[in-house]
Amino acid sequence: MPLLPEVNGHNGVKVKTSHPNPSIQVTADHQVKMVEAPVEEPGHGQVLLHIKATGICGSDIHFWKTGKIGTLVFEGDCIIGHEAAGIVLKVGEGVEGLQVGDRVAVEPGVPCEKCFLCREGRYNLCEDVQFAGVYPYHGTLQRYKVHPAKWLYKLPDTVSYAEAALLEPLSVVLHGIRTAGLSLGRGALICGAGPIGLIALACARASGAHPIVITDLEPKRLAFAKEFSPGCLTYQVNRSLDAEGNAKEIRKLFGPEGDEYSAPPAVLECTGVENSVVTATFAVRRGGVVCVIGVGKSIMNNLPFMHISLAEIDLRFINRYRDTWPSGIACLSGGILDLKKLVTHTFPLEKAIDALHVCSDLSQGSIKIQIVDDVEASLLS
């Protein structure tokens, strides 16, 4: 692959070109391509990373296939990827607490730290966030990436790069668990057995929730869920039933029909699919909480407003996460969670486009696909 001549990085910093930096970019016209990207020099407060592992997220596929998620629109070429971990190769001026050779997990969102939301500590709601892999901010599906040191977290030796790259989806779930308020000995329903749903299943089990039911349309994913978290109950969504009908069947798994107390007080909706959200509102106990974690379409027209109102169902939503990486690392390093089985496929960086195609094809049976880069990389000279 030919190298680019010396050019300016996206932040105007002069970059070096003596080291190959393959990257995966999505274009505004829904194409995906491998491009040699420039290598930026870390500025004040930044470090240069060698990205060792990046997980493929459903949002990466969505940006590729549709070009947008809500108001987030790809208006030009952009390197995707945001579930990442790597090793520090260079340290810019003003960086404290990190040095060359440190293994780190990447929190991909960099908020403005000036708005009232950032000042309140709700930085996940910052409207001026620079989020890796969302146009125009380049993501982690490249060999080398500059990132602010403040949003990197050192890894203990017991946490691998593959596990560390799962900290981003784990963070989504941790924020959802916190928002839904799961508790010891009280039932929980999880809608969707994709990667987020399965991590939610593991977290719900660790929280002490019981019983736990997880739903999906795909029987293979439900079988994986049973193996991944023995003791959970599964429900295959019945396409011939409406949302209320499926909810009625789901409730039977929690206790006798008509026993409102046995119905789940908390639901983690991990698909964002409108019909699944509606099912969740009928399945949850009156006065319960439905936390929508999944990303759905911009407008949902069929939410049962009066049912939600009369039952005083607390319908909540989350936007990414905040203050979750330290607790996520503690869960992995302390053995509270073991998520390694979720990584069903790995591809080298050079074959990342193949990985995207496998991830987008549900018949391939992948759960979490990661791109790994095991080449020896050094920019010290």
Rank of each mutant, 00 (worst) to 15 (best):
Glu168Pro: 14
Leu170Ala: 07
His175Leu: 02
Gly176Trp: 03
Gly176Ser: 08
Ile177Cys: 14
Ile177Tyr: 13
Arg178Gly: 06
Gly181Asp: 15
Ser183Glu: 15
Gly187Asp: 03
Ile190Gln: 14
Cys191Ile: 07
Gly192Leu: 01
Gly192Met: 07
Ala193Asn: 10
Gly194Ala: 01
Pro195Gln: 01
Ile196Gly: 00
Gly197Asp: 08
Leu198Arg: 15
Leu198Ser: 11
Ile199Thr: 09
Cys203Val: 12
Ala204His: 15
Ala204Lys: 10
Ala206Gln: 11
Ala206Gly: 06
Ala209Tyr: 04
Thr215Tyr: 14
Asp216Leu: 06
Glu218Trp: 15
Pro219Met: 09
Lys220Leu: 04
Leu222Ser: 02
Phe224Arg: 06
Phe224Thr: 01
Ala225Gly: 02
Lys226Pro: 08
Glu227Asp: 08
Phe228Trp: 05
Pro230Trp: 05
Cys232Ala: 14
Tyr235Ser: 12
Gln236Phe: 03
Val237Ile: 13
Asn238Gly: 01
Asp242Pro: 09
Asp242Gln: 13
Ala243Val: 04
Ala243Lys: 09
Ala243Ile: 04
Ala243Asp: 06
Glu244Leu: 01
Gly245Phe: 09
Ala247Ser: 10
Ala247Met: 10
Ala247Tyr: 05
Lys248Gln: 06
Lys248Gly: 10
Glu249Pro: 01
Glu249Met: 07
Arg251Leu: 00
Arg251Ile: 02
Lys252Pro: 03
Pro256Ser: 13
Glu257Ser: 15
Glu260Met: 11
Tyr261Leu: 11
Ser262Gly: 06
Pro264Arg: 03
Pro264Cys: 04
Pro265Leu: 12
Pro265Gln: 06
Ala266Lys: 11
Ala266Asn: 15
Val267Gly: 04
Leu268Asn: 14
Leu268Ala: 09
Glu269Tyr: 03
Glu269Leu: 02
Glu269Asn: 03
Glu269Gln: 03
Cys270Glu: 00
Cys270His: 00
Thr271Lys: 00
Glu274Trp: 04
Glu274Ser: 14
Ser276Tyr: 00
Thr279Cys: 07
Thr279His: 02
Ala280Leu: 00
Ala280Val: 02
Phe282Val: 09
Ala283Arg: 01
Ala283Asp: 05
Arg285Ser: 03
Val290Gly: 06
Cys291Asn: 10
Val292Trp: 05
Ile293Pro: 10
Gly294Glu: 06
Gly294Asp: 01
Val295Asn: 10
Gly296Ser: 09
Gly296Ile: 05
